[in-house]
């Protein structure tokens, strides 16, 4: 546990050792705010629904940007050898890195609460919807992170890690979309709709909190963290 914490601390601090973290957060919040307020004044409704609608699309690029470095850099610089010959288990190393990127995502989301404050000042939004929206964002963000982190362990090139993460997350995200479901055989449609990362998000962010959706996201996170541990082990 203390070893996971040590890795977590190092990884989290290293986001702020370079200006990149600040750039990411600024771009993320700037884009979110801009897209949100553009819609907000057009529709003239005191709701954050449109914000949660665009959030996964922002995450599609934002999350791979914060996970691409995590393993690829270690492999490229050779520090992986240093880290894995310290007395840490593969699971502890994976967890430390995951928690660091997750905390970074939470911080970025927390900053976006400014939007909620503004909306509340301008009108009377449904608090249940905002809560559900943030819960959905945290869950889908965690799932994206686990996928991005795993894919980062497969290459030593950060850019490659970024691109394969964006593509993979995109495919898994739209898997349950009506648009995709129309194009596949009938028998496979329920499978796609269950596996798709997007379908579960819609219901949660509408404020309909179903434990099955929560379990689904936690399973996705668990599955990709497990794959990550296996891919770290496979070097041996």
């Amino acid at each position: 546990m203390s070893r996971t914490l040590a890795i977590f601390k190092r990884e989290f601090a290293s986001y702020f050792n370079s200006p990149i973290a600040y750039i990411y957060v600024t771009v993320f919040l700037g884009l979110a705010g801009w897209l949100f307020f553009k819609g907000f004044f057009l529709v003239g409704e005191a709701s954050m629904r449109s914000f949660f609608g665009i959030l996964p699309w922002l995450f599609l690029f934002f999350v791979p940007a914060i996970t691409m470095r995590l393993w690829a850099e270690e492999r490229k610089v050779g520090t992986m050898e240093l880290l894995m010959t310290l007395p840490v288990t593969d699971t502890e190393a994976v967890m430390g890195k995951f928690l660091a990127s997750f905390t970074f995502l939470l911080v970025s989301l927390a900053l976006s609460l400014v939007l909620a404050v503004v909306v509340s000042a301008l009108g009377d939004p449904d608090p249940g919807e905002i809560f559900g929206g943030y819960l959905g964002a945290v869950l889908i963000g965690a799932a994206f992170l686990a996928i991005g982190l795993f894919l980062s362990s497969l290459t030593e090139n950060q850019i490659v890690a970024f691109i394969i993460s964006v593509v993979t997350i995109f495919v898994l995200f739209i898997l349950g979309d009506d648009f995709v479901l129309m194009g596949v055989p009938n028998w496979i449609a329920p499978v796609f709709s269950f596996l798709g990362l997007g379908a579960h998000y819609d219901s949660v962010s509408r404020g309909v909190i179903d434990t099955r959706d929560i379990i689904y996201y936690l399973s996705v996170v668990g599955f990709f963290l497990y794959l990550n541990v296996k891919s770290i082990e496979s070097r041996k």
Binding site: S2, R3, L5, A6, I7, K9, R10, A13, S14, N17, S18, V77, G78, T79, E81, L82, L86, P87, V88
Partner: peptide, 19 residues
């Protein structure tokens, strides 16, 4: 190989923490 984005003392602290 070393974590290049850390300063010398934080780096040694990190190793000490993990150990």
């Amino acid at each position: 190989p070393l974590y290049l984005d850390m300063d010398v003392v934080s780096y040694l602290e990190f190793v000490a923490d993990v150990r």
